[in-house]
Design a protein around this nucleic acid. Structure first.
Lengths: 228, 228
DNA sequence: CGACCATTTGATATGGATCAAGCGATGTGG
DNA sequence: CCACATCGCTTGATCCATATCAAATGGTCG
């Protein structure tokens, strides 16, 4: 499945890739994955890895978008995270993936053997520190998700939009890679509630929704107020 | 505030402390904190540290119980975790605490300067690895919390009881250190819903509640079924 | 004993889920 | 190129789980 993971002897270029966004995961540790790894294409809805599979590899989104999720016993799906270009995912502490990962859109993913990174980290203390840092960043992200899930529907949707706008760093315009169902499963709501809430935000002039996947934040401070 | 954090030259005893529970945080990295640190007493409801304070220290519960929490802008309080004897907390990736910590009961907390641990970790690769492992364990715990918060009230309470029973490792009997309000704020429910749910579980013979802080799990498999 | 606080229980309100239908865009085969 | 099926999304009507408001109970400590 994976080939060519020869480890090159350290000293990795910082932000060597054109799509690395400064200030957002544009760190050496993240770049290593792309630098050392193989870029693989995944089709829309293709599985990248499954829950409980051995976590052999680390991944970084080169283009497109990815969701990680769990299917609960009652059949509901909880999305743990959306990963956009530049984001590292599939990073586990144990030796199995605790979530599944799927391509939301056609995408290109840099893949690298975990063992290769570990090998570098053993020699390069700085790389090891950065691995720990990635885990810490992920921890803070999940803590935010907990806070999100105790808010009202309006707050959740508003927070989600602000988060996406922030991550895309494309100003007030947000291109959503994911469906309403994906958003609902991320926010712990139903698709209907997400849709209604967006409609309501549009009515109150906080946002514009020219097409369902394209949202313009008109009144960011109003959203922030909802954001609680 | 803190004294005596002299760093001793590695080689820490494993599970040297009598209250270290095997299989639950009974790792060398956790023991270091107690070994190197100062044990301090905190009174019930005393603040151990506040959100946004510099994260200078690491903590380990020696006896008693601790809650970490955030107060949201609307005044609600979300509890992020309960920490029981043996648990490490206050472990941050950034340099400020992202939650506040309070003593639930009178308790004894081992405190150690973060810089002291960092110094050891720089020399002892194994200690560094264990620091990363603690972060990873915490990450998985918070991910579980996310899954908890999308369940029904019954499922949340059942999951909580099973979690507590499991952590206390005292068989089917659970001594709750925390109030109904604490539980509610951890589960994202109201105190009334928690109380009613417990009453309902008692009526259906899944549990017994001889006193409000003492709960006996009578039908663990029934709880597990709710647990989803 | 009496005040206080935590907890339980009851009555009612409500936000979001569920059930159901309609709508618009996209794509496919005739 | 159009008719039609499909899919994702929106909107409407109703229901229900949990929140909210209110009061009673019980346990603890001075």
């Amino acid at each position: 499945m994976l080939t060519s993971t020869a480890v090159r002897p350290v000293s990795f270029p910082r932000n060597a890739q054109p799509h690395s966004k400064p200030g957002h995961n544009g760190h050496a540790a993240a770049d290593i994955i792309e630098f050392m790894g193989t870029v693989m294409p995944f089709a829309r809805n293709a599985e990248i890895y499954g829950e409980n599979e051995p976590a052999d590899c680390l991944y970084k989104v080169v283009s497109g978008a990815v969701r990680t999720y769990k299917v609960l016993v009652d059949g509901r799906r909880q999305i743990g995270a959306f990963h956009l270009p530049g984001d590292v995912f599939g990073f586990e502490t144990g030796d199995e993936h605790t979530f599944s990962a799927e391509a939301i859109t056609d995408c290109k993913i840099a893949v690298v053997k975990r063992s290769a990174v570990t090998a570098v980290a053993a020699r390069d203390n700085e790389v090891a520190r950065q691995m720990w840092e990635i885990t810490g960043r992920e921890l803070r992200r999940v803590q935010e998700h907990v806070l999100l899930l105790v808010k009202s529907a309006q707050e959740r949707v508003a927070t989600f939009l602000l988060e996406m706008a922030n991550r895309a760093a494309s100003g007030a315009a947000v291109e959503l890679a994911m469906s309403r169902q994906d958003i609902a499963d991320y926010l712990g709501l139903t698709i209907e509630t997400v849709s209604r809430t967006l409609s309501h935000l549009e009515k109150t002039a906080a946002i514009e929704v020219p097409t369902s996947r394209h949202i313009v934040l008109r009144n960011q401070s109003a959203l922030n107020r909802l954001n609680s």
